[in-house]
Nucleic acid binder design. Structure first.
Length: 279
DNA sequence: TACCAGGTGTGGC
DNA sequence: GCCACACATGGT
């Protein structure tokens, strides 16, 4: 059941969140974990996941409109107590300011295949361009829904060659998309990471083309909700330098940060990433 | 115009 | 195991 602190009520398929201390739709969408969404009006966002869509309105309360409340309740992690997570993290280094800044961030529960493809595209890329590539991918290969396109299936993507992905602007990642989609269509088991430890799951995902340690950590955090990981990207490298005054390899940075934030590393990473990138 | 972006693959040592 | 380098593209 959804936590008490959010004071959630369900009316038909609408989800209503009365207490927004732990929910901010803009922060949650803009913190770099999701690329398929749009601001459609003042305090109104349209969000896409897999083959679904919802509309989120946030003023002094939140309404999530969709035709599948159960899906979006899990997607926005409404059963998780972020008040408790923030309380536990607030005593750790560099957390107080970062949590104040991104107090309403939630870590989403996204579809594994969509997250896999999205973060292959994200590598060495700007967020606006990532959004464009994924939008063209869905328009071209995703099933038509009521006014939008679903994210493509692995089978649909496996039917296209690298040339297709180059033509929609994927750049040098085009062959990675073709190869990895083919691997999943041919049986690469995306349910397996859920059964493995963070480190084991990371190694497993790294066997896919276009997936390295950082992309694997993002997939584990945003699709499997594994919080004992710490994606190290260019922004986290800047954070590490602020903290220690030193440069280091990504592996060493990750080790240091996981040892600092422990089981809540993934949450800490999002607060730090968001506050660094937006400031 | 250069530089940079939620890095990874590859080859050399 | 670590390191340097190449890599498509478009935003700023």
């Amino acid at each position: 059941m959804p936590q008490k602190r959010l004071k959630i009520t369900m009316a038909d398929n609408d989800i209503i969140i009365e207490d927004t201390r732990d929910f901010d739709i803009r922060q949650t969408l803009d913190c770099g974990q999701i690329f398929r969404y749009a601001k459609t009006g003042e305090n109104v966002y349209e969000v896409f996941s897999k083959d679904k869509r919802c509309v989120v309105r946030q003023t002094d309360y939140v309404v999530i409109e969709s035709d599948d409340a159960a899906y979006w309740s899990r997607f926005f992690d409404l059963g998780n107590d972020y008040g408790e997570i923030k309380r536990r993290l607030s005593g750790k280094p560099f957390m107080k300011e970062a949590i104040d800044f991104g107090h309403g961030i939630r870590i989403l529960n996204q579809d594994p295949f969509e997250t896999l493809i999205s973060f292959i595209v994200s590598a060495n890329n700007h967020i606006p361009r990532i959004k464009g590539i994924l939008s063209r991918l869905c328009d071209g290969l995703g099933e038509e829904r009521d006014g939008y396109h679903a994210f493509p299936t692995a089978q649909a993507m496996a039917e296209k060659s690298a040339d297709y992905y180059a033509a929609i602007g994927a750049g040098y990642r085009a062959p990675y998309l073709a190869e990895t989609a083919r691997a999943v269509a041919d049986g690469f088991d995306l349910s397996k990471p859920a059964t493995l430890s963070g480190d084991e799951a990371n190694r497993y995902l790294c066997t896919l083309k276009g997936v390295g340690p950082k992309v694997a950590d993002c997939i584990l955090l945003f699709a499997y909700h594994k919080s004992d990981v710490f994606p190290v990207d260019t922004w986290i490298r800047k954070v590490y330098k602020d903290m220690t005054g030193k440069e280091a390899g990504n592996g060493e940075i990750r080790k240091y940060l996981v040892s600092t934030y422990g089981e809540l590393s993934g949450y800490a990473q999002q607060y730090l990433f968001f506050s660094k990138r937006e400031s």
